[in-house]
Amino acid sequence: GHYRIRINGREFEIRGISEEEIRHLEEALRNGADEKILKEIVDRLRG
């Protein structure tokens, strides 16, 4: 998958993330885990 997200007015492209991972992120966001989720995304993109 290849997705664009906007955070604090800046747009980011996220590549190589699966539909299942996105559902997991959405679930966590609904549970209020904003900073933790951003850290997970950044860590994943770093490799």
Score class of each variant (00 low, 15 high):
Gly1Trp: 04
Glu21Ala: 08
Glu40Val: 06
Gly1Val: 08
Arg10Gly: 03
Leu25Met: 04
Glu21Leu: 04
Asp43Glu: 13
Arg4Phe: 15
Glu40Gly: 09
Glu40Thr: 07
Glu27Tyr: 08
Phe12Glu: 02
His24Tyr: 12
Ser18Leu: 03
Lys36Asp: 12
Glu21Cys: 11
Asp34Tyr: 14
Glu40Asn: 06
Tyr3Leu: 05
Gly9Arg: 01
Ile22Gln: 06
Arg6Leu: 14
Gly1Ile: 07
Val42His: 04
Arg23His: 11
Ile37Asn: 06
Gly16Asn: 14
Glu35Trp: 14
Gly9Lys: 02
Arg44Lys: 12
Arg30Ser: 13
Arg10Glu: 15
Asn8Leu: 05
Leu29Glu: 03
Glu20Thr: 11
Arg44Ala: 10
Ile17Asn: 02
Glu13Val: 15
Arg46Gly: 15
Glu13Arg: 03
Ile7Asp: 00
Ile5Cys: 09
Asn8Met: 05
Glu26Phe: 05
Glu19Asp: 12
Arg6Trp: 15
Leu25Tyr: 03
Arg30His: 12
Arg46Asp: 13
Ile37Phe: 12
Asp43Tyr: 03
Asn8Ile: 01
Ser18Thr: 14
Glu20Tyr: 07
Arg6Ala: 11
His24Ser: 13
Arg44Val: 10
Glu27Val: 06
Lys39Ala: 12
Ile17Thr: 03
Gly1Asn: 08
Arg15Lys: 13
Ile41Pro: 00
Glu40His: 04
Ile14Met: 04
Gly9Pro: 00
Glu20Val: 08
Arg44Gln: 15
Asn31Arg: 10
Gly32Ala: 06
Ile37Ser: 11
Glu11His: 05
Arg44Asn: 13
Glu11Gly: 01
Glu21Ser: 09
Ile17Arg: 02
Arg30Leu: 13
Arg10Tyr: 14
Phe12Arg: 00
Leu29Asp: 01
Leu45Asn: 04
Arg23Pro: 03
His2Phe: 13
Ile41Glu: 02
Asn8Thr: 01
Ile17Cys: 11
Lys39Asn: 11
Ile22Met: 07
Ile41Asp: 00
Asn8Ala: 06
Ile37Leu: 10
Glu27Lys: 09
Glu13Met: 09
Phe12Thr: 02
Asp43Cys: 13
Ile41Gly: 00
Ser18Trp: 02
Glu19Lys: 11
Leu45Ala: 02
Gly32Ile: 04
His24Phe: 15
Ala33Arg: 05
Arg10Lys: 13
Glu40Leu: 08
Asn31Pro: 04
Ile17Val: 12
Asn8Pro: 00
Glu21Met: 06
Ala28Gly: 05
Tyr3Asp: 02
His24Ala: 11
Tyr3Trp: 09
Arg46Tyr: 13
Arg46Gln: 15
Ser18Met: 04
Lys39Trp: 14
Arg15Val: 15
Ser18Ala: 07
His24Cys: 10
Arg6Cys: 07
Lys36Leu: 12
Arg23Val: 09
Lys36His: 13
Glu19Ile: 11
Phe12Val: 10
